[in-house]
Design a protein around this nucleic acid. Structure first.
Lengths: 253, 253
DNA sequence: ACCTGAACACCGTTCAAGT
DNA sequence: ACCTGAACACCGTTCAAGT
């Protein structure tokens, strides 16, 4: 029990797990995951990089703790006032809470996807989610698999959403010093001479350049930036799929 | 047109886009994404690291080309013989082909998720996918959104699947030299003294330690390693959701 | 034209030594 | 007990210089 967390005798200790975690989350929000290095985090805490390893054995362990904290309160936020909600409404609320938790932190989905947090926040959320389905009468297997379906969809979606956010902003660093870059390394697509597009514009360009009739016809929806509507659409598909499965089971059983 | 790809006069050139790409994919399969560095790739090609930058302006561009190549043939693999399939069957085949394409390469999902490939493989796949839905009579918006739902679910799922594979193997490097590691940095959970579990065992441990009634009741399904069944479950949910949406639209319209 | 050599500005992690 | 200093073994990327 004489871990670094417990305040023994001696100097008051500039570091501890909680303060390090909070500073890491702040740094993440300010600068993004790529800029969150152990050295920069140490700097922000006025300490040498090596000192962090007394509280987190590896960077991976720190990231896992961050993922865990991101999910804090997600289950509660979705539970709302109390009862009177259908299982569809409860499931939808939980999924939205998960997406919101990831969106609340810059690169939240990347942090979550890169870790395997199994703390109280994540498991509490999972237990609430599975509980809704079990109490609605779904078989245990279906309940567990639905949890993964919704989580995987949510993480995949938010990964995309946050990647798109990063591209549409943050195009203003290292603003091309004008140094003669070797002319090679082209994609070979015969681009109009300008810069290589990267965001939604890249998709629009590529679609209109090539011959993709169906993509061309759906370009507006394909390049839409209404990620909330996109998330709701997929979520609704899953929930409706569950309802259909339930109706079928009721008819058969 | 005098790009490095076109063989002009001079020495035969040990490098080119295609050979570099192939070697990178081989190295990925052998060693994983974390070991795929520009320096190691250069080593594998018998060249200095800087030489690679004549063919790929950045590592990100190389990774995008890799993602693009992973998806090569996915649309065709799903199209199968010819017609006679329902839109549900065609959609399911396309989604399976996407997962298989990612699974075929080590860390394939991580590579794909970290890039924004908009080449012929990816767009051909997307066009085929959207085409199935449009020809089945779905509105353009629904077709485009369904594409994203399925892709995001598939990427999220395969990310998890490949992460789980990595954990259950590969526990045999840097086999603890016995050096006195500082004793701190514990999670504070009072673990039984052994090593920190990381795979499916970590989840099982955490669930049985805490008080999560619903997770405890569904533990077998929760810790199952049948990822194909898990993928099929989620995919079926989405497809059934689409069918329900279609039936509703037909009744209303 | 294509590649080498060498540098620049970083990384995560370890660990003896100080206080 | 807690942190510093300094190192180890790496990174991605740039670019003058050689051939």
């Amino acid at each position: 029990m004489s871990s670094p967390s417990s305040p023994s005798r001696g100097r008051p200790a500039r570091l501890d797990r909680t303060r390090t975690l909070q500073t890491a989350l702040d740094l993440l929000n300010q600068s993004g995951l790529d800029a969150l290095t152990m050295r920069r985090l140490a700097d922000a805490m006025g300490v040498q990089a090596g000192a962090l390893y007394r509280y987190f054995a590896t960077k991976q362990e720190l990231l896992t703790a961050m993922a865990e904290r991101m999910m804090e309160g997600a289950a509660e936020a979705a539970t709302g006032a109390s009862a009177g909600y259908t299982w569809q409404q409860q499931l939808t609320a939980l999924a939205r809470a998960a997406r919101n938790a990831l969106l609340t932190h810059r690169d939240g989905a990347r942090v979550f996807a890169g870790t395997h947090a199994t703390g109280a926040s994540v498991l509490g959320f999972a237990d609430a989610f599975v509980g809704v389905l079990r109490e609605a009468g779904f078989p245990d297997d279906d309940a567990a698999r639905t949890l993964y379906s919704v989580i995987n969809f949510t993480v995949g979606h938010t990964l995309e959403e946050q990647a798109a956010l990063q591209l549409e902003s943050g195009r203003t660093e290292g603003a091309d010093t004008g140094g003669g870059r070797p002319e090679g390394a082209d994609t070979g697509g015969g681009r109009p001479e300008g810069a290589v597009p990267e965001g939604a514009g890249a998709l629009r360009d590529a679609v209109t350049t090539g011959t993709y009739p169906h993509l061309a016809a759906t370009l507006p929806a394909l390049t839409s930036t209404d990620f909330t509507a996109l998330f709701e659409f997929g979520l609704d598909l899953i929930v409706e799929g569950l309802r259909a499965r339930r109706a079928r089971a009721a008819a058969t059983g």
